[in-house]
Simulated scan of single mutants.
Amino acid sequence: MENHKNTPFNSPNGDKENEELNHVWNLAESAYSETEISTEQVEEALQNVHSRIDDSGPDYSSNQTSSQERYWLYARYLVAAAALITFGLYFLFTPIHISVPYGEMATIELPDGSSVELNSGSELTYSRFFGRADRDLTLNGEGYFSVEPANAPFRVKSNGTVTEVLGTQFNIRSWRDDPNSETVLTVTDGKVDFFAERSEHHKVTLTAGKLSRWNLEMEIPIVEEPLNITDRIGWKENRLIFKEQSLIVILHELERRFDTRISLEVPGAGLDTLTAYYAEPKSVAAVLEDISTVKGFRFAETANGYRIFK
């Protein structure tokens, strides 16, 4: 479908000026739509308008200046001011989004003094007003949070769940590509409330050393005590620890950790479970060799990564 832009300006100073004014106007309109606008587009458009204002305005010392020319000078100022305000608001209300590349980890210092360590492939989103209006974040992936005490509760939304605290330390594992759609919360210090977004009144409260799980089939998260809480946060020390994990979950973890692609070409094998511990995994090939030996598979390197087959 053809996209018709608004052209509200028809300056007497020529087509070039009309084009610049209308371009800035349309960019300002786009800021309130879902259209993506680059910083370069904004700067170029505003620079052109500023140039017009500075260099080509009418000379008021001349008696030849018409009221129409003065009108268009004012219009140029108004367009530039409106565009600056619009893009300023657009910037303020666009959330901060952090995405950790595969094969890397990151530590994020939040505006309220809290911090979060993010595992490979994780995504974190929060408002530019974080710590002032609220302390709400959204997580897809795995993160270890160290929360500074404050009056406002600290909330992490992750794939249908909410973790709410005032000041504590905890780990959340919640991947959108998890076949079980499972969120696992492990508390290492303090006290945490955990619940599904769809049933906030069914909260569970966890203290240090407790673990809770939730998936889409549950109304209320279940609570248990982890056998070894340090294993739950071993990823922070670059360890790989799998306890009765399905093979598809393990392969996704290896893809993120080693920034590669792994194709499982054994029908039905994705739900097979495996337990493994690597203090310092040397390479993805070494791990795949162990998996293949235990499961009776073979694996080979491809142009894009690896394939596992019978």
Score class of each variant (00 low, 15 high):
M218W: 05
L240Q: 09
A285E: 15
K210F: 00
V249F: 08
R213N: 08
G190E: 04
A196F: 06
P281Y: 08
I291W: 10
E244R: 12
E253L: 06
E253G: 10
I220G: 04
P267W: 07
F195E: 01
A208F: 08
F195D: 00
R256Q: 03
N228A: 06
V287A: 11
F297S: 01
R173Y: 09
S283P: 11
E224C: 12
L185V: 14
L240S: 03
E182Q: 13
D259M: 09
H201Y: 10
S246T: 10
L251F: 02
E289S: 14
A303L: 02
E253P: 05
A286N: 11
T260G: 09
N228S: 13
V294Q: 14
R239G: 07
L240P: 03
T183L: 02
K243F: 10
E280R: 15
S199L: 10
A286I: 05
L247E: 04
H252L: 05
E224N: 10
P281Q: 11
V165F: 07
P226Y: 01
A208K: 14
G190D: 09
N180Q: 15
P267S: 13
S283L: 15
L206A: 08
L211A: 02
K282M: 15
K295E: 02
R261S: 08
E200G: 05
E197W: 04
T293V: 15
K243A: 06
V187Q: 00
P179L: 03
R256D: 14
I241H: 08
R232E: 11
L185G: 00
T188A: 11
S283G: 03
A276W: 15
V249E: 11
E253W: 06
T188I: 02
A196Q: 06
E265M: 13
E244M: 14
M218V: 07
G296L: 13
Q169P: 01
T273N: 05
L247K: 09
T168L: 09
T205M: 05
M218F: 06
I262N: 03
G234H: 12
N228M: 11
N228P: 04
T207F: 07
T186W: 04
V287M: 09
G270E: 04
R176Y: 07
R198M: 00
T293C: 07
T293D: 10
A276M: 12
V192Y: 13
S246Q: 11
D272S: 12
E217G: 13
E197A: 06
E255N: 11
E280P: 03
I233F: 08
P179F: 04
E289R: 13
R213G: 01
T293G: 08
E265Y: 09
F258S: 02
M218H: 09
V249D: 00
T168K: 04
T273V: 12
D189R: 11
V162T: 15
F258G: 09
H252A: 00
K236A: 02
T161I: 04
K282H: 14
P226F: 13
L251W: 01
T168R: 15
V184W: 07
P221M: 04
E289A: 07
I250R: 05
W235C: 03
V249R: 15
T260W: 04
I250M: 03
I229S: 12
L185I: 07
F299K: 14
D189G: 10
K243S: 03
L166Y: 14
V187K: 01
V284E: 09
G296V: 04
V294W: 06
L288N: 13
L240R: 02
A279H: 14
R232V: 00
R198A: 10
H252M: 08
A276R: 12
I248T: 06
I233K: 05
